[in-house]
Amino acid sequence: MNIDQELLQKIAHLARLEMPESAEKEMKESLESVLNWMSELDEIDTSNVKPLTHMSLEINALREDKVIPNISREQGLKNAPKQDGEYFRVPKVME
């Protein structure tokens, strides 16, 4: 598996991680070696196998529709990096 610079930057963008040019080479090599290793999975024929999507044996874990008051606004904002007593704040979302 070869990861070119474009793909690397695309993945970094999807993951919202900075990818400075200086870090590119190391990340590219790391990814490629692990992905090559993961490709060993291709050795097995799985054409008739269904993917295992759920590991729990339970079904229908449902909740009654009841309101249970939880944390206050103050508590909710407590961990916020930037807030004004009412809202969480971030730099303006560009439309």
Binding site: V67, I68, N70, L77, Y87
Partner: peptide, 19 residues
């Protein structure tokens, strides 16, 4: 519904922000 789809906080409209 009274509560949210995956959590038990209230689902009603118009409340003061982040309450």
């Amino acid at each position: 519904t009274e509560s949210k789809i995956f959590a038990a906080d209230a689902a009603s409209f118009g409340a003061s922000p982040n309450t």
